[in-house]
Design a protein around this nucleic acid. Structure first.
Lengths: 217, 217
DNA sequence: TTATTTTTTTAGAGTAATCTAAACTTTTTA
DNA sequence: TAAAAAGTTTAGATTACTCTAAAAAAATAA
């Protein structure tokens, strides 16, 4: 069984590697986990011995099939808890991350199965990120940044940046996961967009923001 | 802030001391926490420095006012989570303890307030044990063992022994917290009782069992 | 009240995770 | 392609918690 710390490393490596596609360097992990590169080297060796990642000195790590399975299970738990916090307890979507970071380490397969059922087997968390099923499977519709949907009518599916400040901003202007967004116009001088939400409210959003909202057509 | 381990020691000391009344010896703590007396001595010194207990070498520890507050908060969290697991997720009352042992250490006052509200501010957990409020206050109706309620009509309020085996047995014969129990007869030769549950089903229960069911008149 | 037993503490060591400083590799730059 | 810079690893120390074995204190029995 993995320790709290090992789970955090594994999850971080999975995310940094783009779901296991690329290899990840020591410094990136250190930055993400807020620790020193020397500590990462130590932990990475431990995870390699357990066959969760493969480690080549000086060239970073790649997650193994086994490591991916473990990582997806942690991500599943994280996203189910976030869904619970928002849907059942009434948290704002910007408040849930830190609590879910703790809850994701609770060890009880039965608890997670029952929680999943209680939530109605959701396929995405409050930020629109897909929730892997028991076997680590999930489907993602092809999503594009809102910035690339000029003139189109699309549905908001996820956010790329989950910082509380950004989520707070979105709530204020009325953008939420599931909202229908029509991109009316693009300002040439700064790339900001004029959009209409749910065929009602019209707002302007910055280029930066439009690149962090993922949508489907 | 207290570590996971410190919280477990404090909670255990609180329970062993009868809610802070008596002092508790090193060996009792070691037994309860499944560790060695030498480890207890170390930890007890740490907790004493933090003013959560007072420690007199060779004579055991007493919990302080501050320690009691912390302990009650952990117990509050434990019991709210147990209630959640049974009422919302459909766990059996014998399955919840171990999971709640983990959940009680999650650090988020907001989470606990929202959970409390979601559950409708319950005053007792599924075993009938009182849930302290935010300020550590709770009221206990005067409870007596069923064994002392001969001939009376009472309401089951709590169990003294929370072992899965006992809880399982109670479920099987149909006794639950809140059930109305009428003690019809007491067998002289072994002290077992004939009881009627909710004015319906009649069953025999052993002396042992009747001492572990707490009731109010 | 002395001797024996039981309980508790101390001393010293081990494990997991972390750190700093120094050494070593790789990458970049000139 | 040699020198400088950036990134990574190693060595050795630190903290929190645990343990065993030995020493010390308290409780019990003779």
């Amino acid at each position: 069984m993995l320790s709290f710390t090992e789970e955090n490393y594994l999850k971080t490596i999975y995310h940094l590697s783009d779901s296991g596609l690329k290899s990840v360097l020591t410094n990136e992990i250190a930055e993400a986990i807020q620790t020193k590169p020397a500590s990462v080297t130590d932990m990475v060796k431990k995870l390699a011995i357990k066959n969760l990642i493969s480690y080549e000195k000086y060239y970073g790590v790649k997650i193994t099939r086994q490591g991916k399975t473990e990582a997806l299970n942690i991500i599943r738990k994280h996203r189910l808890w976030e869904t619970f916090l928002v849907e059942k307890l009434g948290f704002n979507w910007g408040e849930v991350h830190e609590v879910a970071e703790q809850l994701e380490h609770i060890q009880s397969p039965l608890l997670i199965e029952k929680l999943d059922e209680f939530l109605g087997f959701p396929s995405a968390d409050p930020h629109g990120h897909p929730i892997p099923d028991k076997n680590g499977k999930f489907k993602v519709a092809r999503q594009i940044p809102l910035a690339e949907a000029i003139g189109k009518k699309v549905v908001a599916r996820a956010v790329k940046n989950s910082s509380p400040a950004f989520l707070d901003y979105l709530s204020k202007i009325g953008v939420y996961i599931g909202a229908t967004l029509q991109v009316i116009d693009k300002m040439d001088f700064d790339g900001s967009l004029e959009i209409q939400i749910d065929a009602k409210k019209k707002v302007y959003i910055s280029k930066e923001a439009s690149e962090n909202i993922l949508v489907t057509e």
